[in-house]
Amino acid sequence: MSKISSRSQQLEAFDRLLTIMDELREQCPWDRKQTIESLRHLTIEETFELSDAILDADLEEVKKELGDILLHIVFYAKIGEEKGAFDIATVIESLCEKLIRRHPHIYGDTEANDDEAVKQNWEKIKLQEKGNKSVLGGVPRSLPALIKAMRIQEKARGVGFDWEDKAQVWEKVEEEMQEFKEAFDVTAPEDIDRERATGEFGDVLFSLINYARFVDINPEEALEKTNRKFIYRFQYLEEAAKKAGKNLGDMTLNEMDIFWNEAKKH
């Protein structure tokens, strides 16, 4: 593990990064060519790579990915400086001021005795700052649907719109599942009302995400772990079938289940 640097060493390292960014922007053809727009998709990719490292609990990789994201932040700030719009100092100062405003229980006289109170204060202050007409106005439109559902529910809870206990939420889950079942409980597939069934399935997912929040489970993280578990087991199945001289496409489901159950033991 790397040693923990002193504050002066941290500032020196950041200064070195800023100097390198200046040099690259001036001397490197690729770096000179980049714009805020061209960096956008790369930043998204780097964020997902950091997410992978976190899920893998690989701190060395987390360190590397944080470096990549920090480079992007410095890069955006450099372009902002060239445009006369902002620089890294104004970005940091703006962040510092926001943190102070949104933590009145630390820098003011507001009381917040637990993390839930802090989150509610944060959302209320954020709503006032942005001047949104809706509490949900600050949820990015392009968020993946599952994460968006989590943020919508968290923001609604921030102003007191929420269930009182998890039993109520589970009743809602069962209600939505029954409605979904009814939407698909027809004899002929062509008789299914696809639009209604799609809506009911969305309601099931939304209610399950709500319940996960009440029992302190991150549904996105839970689903990704299940994805990875399925990938591991399926790839084990592929490899086992190959070693047995078999082709998955020619195997019966019962034959594949033998290898699948073996994978579950590993």
Rank of each mutant, 00 (worst) to 15 (best):
L99K: 09
S94G: 15
R40V: 01
D87K: 00
L95W: 07
T19A: 13
L95H: 12
Y107M: 03
L17A: 15
R16M: 10
D15P: 00
R40C: 04
Y76E: 03
Q27H: 09
R16F: 13
T47R: 06
H41I: 10
W30F: 14
D31E: 15
L66E: 06
D15T: 13
Y107K: 02
S51Y: 07
C28A: 13
D52M: 05
E82R: 03
E60Y: 12
E12K: 02
A85R: 09
E45H: 08
E93D: 13
K98N: 00
D68W: 03
T19Q: 13
R32H: 05
Q27D: 10
P104N: 04
L66T: 12
E82Q: 12
D58W: 02
K98R: 08
G80F: 01
F14P: 07
I88C: 02
L55D: 08
D56F: 05
E93R: 11
H72R: 12
D68N: 05
H41L: 09
A53P: 02
Y107G: 04
E81T: 12
I44R: 07
R102L: 07
F14T: 14
S8I: 14
A77Y: 02
T90M: 06
L95Q: 11
E65F: 04
I92K: 06
E37N: 05
F14N: 12
Q34M: 11
K63E: 11
V62P: 12
H72L: 09
C28K: 09
C96N: 13
V74I: 15
M21A: 10
D52I: 06
L70H: 12
Q34N: 13
K64H: 11
E60C: 05
I88K: 01
E65D: 08
P29H: 06
I36C: 08
K98L: 02
H105N: 11
D52K: 13
K98M: 02
K64M: 04
H105C: 06
A57N: 15
I36N: 11
M21H: 14
I79V: 13
L39A: 09
E61L: 14
A77I: 02
P104Y: 00
A57W: 06
S94Y: 00
T43W: 04
I54R: 06
E82C: 07
C28H: 15
E26F: 01
E23L: 11
Q10T: 14
E82I: 04
L39F: 04
S38V: 01
E82H: 04
E65G: 02
E37H: 09
E65N: 05
T43C: 03
T19R: 12
C96G: 02
F48E: 08
A89H: 09
D52S: 08
Q34E: 11
